[in-house]
């Protein structure tokens, strides 16, 4: 019974520490999978797995990062089972024009009609990324993890994190710039005038 009561304590702690993170985990899973049903399954699988091994989790280490590790692995396995790969960005064309638009300041996020619009555009752009790039960008730009932590969570070398983040952001920049021109019609004219 001693063993059970120790386990019970660990599980009480689990409920106190992990359940408040459900919204955050779900938000991340929604961006990662792009599908509500899939995201709910991902969060449920993650919590059940975490729950079962919670007595082996070392208090004081990063709980959130541990949950993201389980979630990312679960998602990878689900994609593999469905014969979908993490994908790649090998065909990525240079950001060129989009880069210029951001640099010239002609795309002003403040001028995007409203936040809801920006959010929708960002979501669409994220959806277009292959999952492995999406995971790196989300861990960096949504969750604010350092390169080293992202490498640990995803189980890849830090150099891979840096290159995926760089290329992922380039792709996003392109999608967002194109879309921004649609959102703010007066920018289209300005962009056209600037082209030689």
């Amino acid at each position: 019974m001693l063993l059970f009561s120790r386990k019970r304590k660990a599980r009480d702690a689990f409920e106190a520490d992990v359940l408040p993170l459900v919204d955050r985990l779900f938000g991340f899973a929604m961006y990662l999978s792009g599908d509500r049903r899939e995201a709910e399954d991902l969060v449920q699988d993650t919590l059940v797995k975490a729950y079962r091994s919670f007595d082996r989790f070392e208090p004081g280490t990063n709980l959130r990062a541990w949950l993201y590790t389980i979630l990312a692995n679960t998602y990878k396995n689900r994609l593999r089972r469905r014969d979908q790969s993490w994908g790649s960005l090998d065909d990525l064309s240079p950001a060129g024009e989009a880069e210029t638009a951001w640099n010239e300041g002609t795309i002003d996020p403040e001028a995007m009609t409203d936040d809801a619009d920006l959010q929708e555009r960002v979501r669409e752009a994220i959806d277009k990324l292959p999952p492995d790039f999406r995971a790196v960008v989300l861990l960096a730009d949504l969750e604010g993890y350092a390169y080293r932590e992202i490498a640990d969570i995803l189980g890849v070398p830090i150099g891979t994190v840096m290159s995926r983040l760089h290329r992922g952001r380039q792709a996003l920049k392109r999608h967002l710039a194109g879309l921004a021109a649609e959102v703010v019609p007066h920018l289209v004219g300005e962009l056209a005038e600037e082209r030689p």
């Binding site: 955050r24 795309i107 936040d115 960002v122 989300l138 949504l142 952001r169």
Partner: peptide, 16 residues
């Protein structure tokens, strides 16, 4: 660009 990306991501989080 990074400011817009981060603002869009954080603002668009879907709650469970």
């Amino acid at each position: 660009f990074l400011g817009a990306l981060r603002r869009g991501l954080a603002g668009g989080l879907t709650p469970a």
